[in-house]
Design a protein around this nucleic acid. Sequence first.
DNA 1: GACAGTATACCTATCAGTAGATAGACTGCC
DNA 2: GGCAGTCTATCTACTGATAGGTATACTGTC
Lengths: 186, 186
Amino acid sequence: MFVSAKRSEIEQAATSAIKREGFKSVSFRTLADQVGVKSSSVHYHFRTKDDLAEAVIRSYTEAFEAALHAIEQENETLLGKLDGFQDLFAEVVAQDDICLCGMMAAEVSSLGDGAKQALRAFFRISESWLEKTFAAHASELSGQLSAAELAGIFMAGLEGATLVDRVDGKVARLQAFRSLSRSLIT
Amino acid sequence: MFVSAKRSEIEQAATSAIKREGFKSVSFRTLADQVGVKSSSVHYHFRTKDDLAEAVIRSYTEAFEAALHAIEQENETLLGKLDGFQDLFAEVVAQDDICLCGMMAAEVSSLGDGAKQALRAFFRISESWLEKTFAAHASELSGQLSAAELAGIFMAGLEGATLVDRVDGKVARLQAFRSLSRSLIT
DNA sequence: GACAGTATACCTATCAGTAGATAGACTGCC
DNA sequence: GGCAGTCTATCTACTGATAGGTATACTGTC
């Protein structure tokens, strides 16, 4: 499936901008300026703004899935996998951004149906990976929390941590979740 | 200190709208329509949009502080206090909203200095309350997490839980944090 | 008590800027 | 010739913000 280079470039520019300023703040004109075309050309690749939102979320989800797969391959232990997952969020905060889908989640009320569905898919996929991972290492876990509960805690927790950490420029909450994962593993 | 009824009304309308759609989506005109005045009258009470943001965040913080104080008075146990804290977030999700300051945190890059500072104050105050509460009940806690770490985990975690739960209309992550608090208390 | 001055709280009218979106023409490659 | 990709030009709608006016109410002075 070939997609034009310009289309990818626009998508990439949109992704960066959304992670920093949010989807509402991104305009066809600023994206066009950034990649060196006119706004009507952006409309050519993405008919409406909601088409753009959906495409960006789906690409982000694909990349996220690939990263999760790599983490799985490169780590044997639960702690290693969990650290890898948290690294993904640490990278985002390091660039003074938040997770694209966390940002979109805040703006969900102004998204169309296609984008909303794509957003739900992101969280379903990510949480499923976490749940599967916790379930596979159940014997290493102390405490009475289920794999599903742990998945929800880490998914929501890390999204919230990037959100709150960005406000004061620290990484205190992200660090606290590192500690939490260590305290849960025997 | 008397503030005009209309000003309060505008602030209230802004608060509701921000919790639902975000600050960017709120306009002087829609607020004006909602409270039955012209947009220039909204500008009379709040000179700029950032003045409005700051005022709304400060009022929200005051109300939040008052709620925390009430929780403290009405609950003896750590679990009771923690449940009370989580109830505040459950109320927000029940109305299909997210915490006003969580929303503002997502939009922080488009806020002015006054609003940013007010936002930092909200998180500082809320997290301090949590930390103080955890520290006061240290003997009831199992595990090696510090009071500061626990405060960060619950503050960020609950902000994230409301954010993610709203996407699929469930309260799964909020519930998972209820379980977490129970698993941490001996 | 009457008047001047000032503050509050709104109004109408308008501004420049930006938003998403569309129609129709041009260009270069296969 | 046909198609992909881009262009110019334009539209309607809306944004935050400002200028200038008005009615009402309070406040201090004579």
